[in-house]
Design a protein around this nucleic acid. Structure first.
Lengths: 223, 223
DNA sequence: CAAATATAATAGTATTACTATCAAAGTTCA
DNA sequence: TGAACTTTGATAGTAATACTATTATATTTG
């Protein structure tokens, strides 16, 4: 994975940034440390001023890369889903058996993520924690509809569409392929959140992932 | 439902308010109009100042009822889940067949909610929209663990626990009763969100509810 | 070497999320 | 009736946030 991904430049919707952060030292530093800082103090408490202090740079310099912290978060989550899409494409090509393909796809979106060292400036393990704790907040704003039109959530939808296609291959007669796919992806994030914070209403324990639960679900529903 | 509920005083965790809003005109006005205003402009843009202007009262007066807008939102969502719990208890008592009981419970948490006129100061239909758009934000903060210890989310967990119990009645051998229950409740909110904003990744159409999808899911998994 | 570009530093604005104080109005009850 | 208490309103003030604008400085590039 490492070698393949290090050649891959993940492309992000240009409307999400003012200046492409991948093109400079400062930009890469913003990406790297925003992930660490959001993970540490949470997105609400995260500000460009605090990030500036941390990377010994100025608030105003960060504004030259991102209009506001919301767009930075959408950038980071887009990166994550793009990375996920790539891994999914890689894991499912040349798998002829649809059930096996579905199992692999579900595993990818439900498992615990560790840093894969693919990119030095992005720690995928920590980024995945941010996805669990903050991703839905990128959607749940009064600007969703506009931002959706602008294509901010395209990559996320593309990941779900891949799963929808596999579900249809497994069982073309199942009438809720879209809802099942989105339920698995979003539901998995939520189960991870619950295992960390509201442990009494999930079966996942501390270090467990959601793979077993959702694989079982998909198979019972589709087969 | 109407008559029964009008006699019911929904009790909310005392730590959520400074002064019980149900004990005065101003308090009831705060509840009523905060629901309308949050629905209109979204929770991010909602402030006590704007609410004060709307109800022709003063910002400082609202602070005498709620410490901050987050606690007000937790209050409102607690009210909703308490109301839901009551409806669920009512709908499932004296139903001996577990499958039928499960169907009724799933219907309640997945259907579209209309104002039931049970309480003049709370429009349940609009409140349910707030639940869809804002509820997860009450959980996804850096303070979840503390607030969970303080019992802020007890009512929500109680609703899910009722479903867990019914699932166990239906199939005592199913190993993921907790995750299935929390998945249905949270997942249903998410599907409603998707049908409003990201229509391409859900099968629910405009005015449809999530009942059919989740009833089908539960039955295929448990029976 | 000049021009262009990137970053840093500083200052400033409007809004938010409060806290504090004091006055006015209404209510209670002795 | 009138003193005491409660509730609300009005005003002012603070620290932090989320920016924008300007200018200086350093670096790169052609």
């Amino acid at each position: 994975m490492q070698n393949l991904l290090s050649n891959l430049k993940i492309t992000i919707n240009e409307k999400l940034y003012v200046k492409d952060p991948e093109t400079s030292e400062l930009g890469l530093n913003i990406l790297k440390n925003s992930i660490l800082l959001i993970d540490e103090i949470g997105f609400e408490a995260f500000t460009f001023k605090k990030l500036g202090e941390r990377i010994q740079s100025n608030e105003s310099s960060i504004y030259r890369y991102f209009e506001n912290k919301h767009k930075l978060l959408v950038y980071l989550t887009s990166w994550y889903w793009s990375w996920m899409e790539y891994r999914m494409a890689f894991a499912t090509t040349n798998v002829s058996n649809p059930v096996e393909k579905l199992e692999k796809a579900i595993k990818l979106v439900t498992e615990n993520i560790a840093d894969d060292n693919a990119t030095p400036h992005i720690n995928e393990g920590i980024l995945s924690r941010i996805i669990v704790e903050e991703f839905t907040k990128t959607l749940m704003t009064k600007e969703v509809d506009n931002e959706n039109k602008e294509g901010f959530f395209l990559v996320y939808k593309r990941v779900i569409n891949r799963i929808i296609d596999i579900i249809k291959e497994v069982n073309p007669n199942y009438p809720f392929a879209k809802s099942l796919a989105s339920n698995i992806v979003e539901g998995s994030l939520h189960q991870h959140f619950l295992k960390n914070h509201l442990k009494t209403i999930t079966n996942l324990s501390e270090k467990e992932c959601a793979t077993e639960f959702y694989t079982d679900m998909a198979k019972k529903i589709l087969l």
